[in-house]
Design a protein around this nucleic acid. Sequence first.
DNA 1: AGTGGGATCTGT
DNA 2: CAGATCCCACTA
Length: 203
Amino acid sequence: MTLPHPSQVIEQQWFARPAPEVAPDLIGCVLVRQLPNGERLRGIIVETEAYGPDDPACHAYRKRTPRNAVMFGVAGYSYVYLIYGMYHCFNVVTDQDGVASAVLIRALALQDIGSESAALSPKAQARLAAGPGKLCRCLEIDRSLSQVPLMHGQPLWFEHPVREADAEISSLELVQTTRIGLTQGVEIPWRWYLKGSAAVSKL
DNA sequence: AGTGGGATCTGT
DNA sequence: CAGATCCCACTA
């Protein structure tokens, strides 16, 4: 069992910057999910989107509500919401306390996969967390995991990239473009992904 | 109290 | 490209 080296875990303070700075920095980092049954799932982040204040696509654009309240709080907490009645989306709260912003984690290249999915073909495994809804299904994330601190010992946390494991990923080009699935704020180029990764949503 | 739309995904 | 499916924010 590999316990994370303390310096490897990303602290909540790291997220206390504007979302459009955090989102590209998260590409190549690792998301870790500690399941209730003891299994630990890990994946390299290959696609993110930023949402911020003065951003019409942001859930917190209009005002603070019970649903979006956590986005107004301090950085390094989870924001999980239900979309289209059937999927969940997982975000990290960013920026200073009082600034409503977050980064949506859209896709992972899975490293440690759950035992249930181990029998799937490599191709199918690569698509397991390709898209925010599938990612949450794969990592068993729902709204009960909203507003929890993203730190070691919790159900979810982030780690900095490890050099060896990262060799293949780090050769890929980081692309910045517009966000997906929106009706407002369509022109804001706050989506980042690794070009050529099989796990990026909507090729 | 009623309603309409949504940061998605799958199959036709 | 339609359908599944349900919470929540907004209107009255």
